[in-house]
Design a protein around this nucleic acid. Structure first.
Length: 481
RNA sequence: GCGGGAGUAGCUCAGCUGGUAGAGCGAUAGCCUUCCAAGCUAUAGGUCGCGGGUUCGAACCUCGUCUCCCGCUCCA
């Protein structure tokens, strides 16, 4: 029986809670909108995904190094990056058409109409008033301006407006303990800027030569107007970003290179290529000269999981201008100083987590040999990222079997995450491990005492075979490589 | 932000025209000793999302609010 995508999404959310992957933040206080916590198995899964990415970037490329920059940054950083100007505008909604306008656009549009009618003086006064109110953050003044001039919505034709409100995607707080003397600073809305401002520090201390990359994993914060769809769009989320610094003019090749390289990482985890696609940006952000999303077929539709952007020298040049410090690189090969261009790969860790669950979550039903119906819910997570790698199960909890199980547990637990369980029937324990996505289970039985072999059971096929107890550790290590 | 739907045990849900809560699964402890959950026994878990109102009495009626899901909108 097929379940619909919508049902599957609901089932994943329930499963994530029931089995300790994801909880709503502050649940006992009714939760906090669009903020989530990761539970015991969720935090393992998330960590494993993070490690896969980090190791791929830093260990597998000798020209990429990592950093861990602070969440707080100098306020000017966000002026230079364009975040302050582009993402903190007073907005107003028309209650009839439900259309939302930037207040300055609305008033400027009306001023243009005045000019067209030959009322240049009125237009000039209007714009001057607007600028004064904008500078003073006087929202009621702005609304009064709209009302006095009887500015109407172009869709509904009415002047039925909400109050003017500030929409700022960045969270702010105060640095300094005395609030009226403190400076307003922001929680970073992206991790990239921590890399850009450290460009020269890293390049010089790690003796990097262009082309080279800087990788970073960390939290970012965006005060989304609408944040929804479980952990897909959260207000606090984790990014895995790599900024690759290159010689100007070579961005096309490197953009193509990273596009391919990043897709290889996804499929290399064992995720099916047919669930992925590229989606080119038509409208480019203020910093980019090319941009593409890697999209995945989530139960909620094709959605972006990763972005690859050609950011030109926008960020470094801008920081150079605002800071007054040169952010240049001397290229020995061509005997030239230049501000490097940048190719960015930026993947949402939480989205990758949701992607993994979306791929892995499977409900299976079949008829047993005796004609009875059987079923299971199994997370077919790639073994590399599964929270628990190996479950160690004594068939019965007597006759010395638990002791043997404890021994093998002791041997393996420093290499990978093991889970010991002696409660309930073996079938029930297998089901529980299926629900957590544990790829391998071994069962210690009476025969183990005689010939030192165990049954290993594979999650996806439910097949089992006998192997030497001494080989378990190496076998699992090999499979999770 | 607007519109729609929902919120009762860890999960899925029942609860009649208002009379202070139930089931299945799950969990815990024990029995059984079994290679694919659903044998037996016992136990624990809910001020019915939260707050006001109506009423002798509210899970149920009403108002507000919070959270989640869907559509629109937004999305560096």
């Amino acid at each position: 029986m097929m379940i619909t995508d919508q049902q599957k999404f609901q089932a994943i959310i329930s499963h994530a809670k029931e089995y300790g992957f994801v909880f709503q933040s502050s649940e006992i206080y009714d939760g906090l909108s669009a903020v989530y916590d990761y539970g015991p198995w969720g935090s393992e899964l998330k960590r494993n995904i993070r490690d896969q990415w980090w190791n791929e970037m830093t260990r597998m490329h000798d020209n990429i190094v990592g950093i861990d920059a602070a969440i707080f940054m100098h306020p000017t950083t966000w002026k230079a990056s364009g975040h302050v100007d582009n993402f903190s505008d007073p907005m107003i909604d028309n209650k009839d058409s439900k259309k939302r306008y930037r207040v300055d656009h609305l008033i400027e549009g009306f001023a243009e109409k005045l000019v067209a009618d030959g009322k240049n003086d009125e237009a000039d006064i209007l714009i001057a008033d607007m600028d004064r109110f904008l500078a003073a953050n006087d929202f009621s003044g702005l609304k009064g301006l709209i009302e006095r001039n009887k500015i109407v919505c172009s869709v509904s034709g009415t002047g039925n407006w909400t109050d003017v409100r500030q929409f700022n995607l960045m969270f702010s707080t105060q640095l300094g303990s005395v609030s009226d003397e403190a400076n307003e600073i922001y929680l970073r809305p992206e991790t990239a800027q921590g890399i850009f401002v450290n460009f020269l520090n890293v390049q010089k201390t790690a003796r990097m030569k262009i082309p080279f990359g800087i990788a970073q994993v960390g939290k970012a914060f965006r005060n989304e107007i609408v944040a929804r769809q479980f952990i897909f769009r959260m207000r606090e989320f984790e990014q895995m970003e790599m900024q690759f610094f290159i010689r100007p003019g070579t961005q096309k090749e490197w953009y193509a290179y990273w596009k391919e390289e990043r897709m290889k990482w996804h499929t290399g985890l064992g995720l099916p290529a047919e669930n992925y696609r590229f989606h080119d940006h038509v409208k480019l952000a203020h910093y980019a000269d090319a941009a593409v999303d890697i999209e995945y077929a989530f139960p909620i539709g094709w959605k972006e999981v990763e972005g690859i952007h050609s950011r030109t020298d926008f960020d470094l040049s801008s920081h150079q201008q605002y800071s007054g410090k040169k952010l240049q690189y001397f290229d020995n090969e061509i005997n030239q100083n230049y501000v490097p261009y940048v190719i960015e790969t930026s993947i949402g860790l939480d989205r990758m987590f949701l992607l993994s669950l979306s791929y892995a979550y499977t409900e299976e039903k079949w008829t047993k040999d005796d004609g009875k119906e059987d079923s299971r819910v199994v997370l077919k997570l790639p073994a590399k990222i599964a929270p628990i790698k190996l479950a160690i199960l004594p068939l019965v909890k007597k006759d010395g079997l638990p002791e043997i199980a404890r021994d093998i547990m002791h041997e393996c637990r420093s290499d990978f995450y093991c889970f010991y369980e002696e409660k309930d029937t073996i079938g029930k324990r297998y089901r529980r491990m299926d629900a957590l996505g544990t790829p391998f289970c071994i069962t210690i039985d009476h025969q183990t005492k005689e010939d030192q072999t165990v049954t290993i059971r594979y999650r996806d096929t439910m097949m089992q075979e006998r192997i030497a107890l001494a080989k378990v550790r190496e076998l699992v290590k090999e499979k999770i490589k």
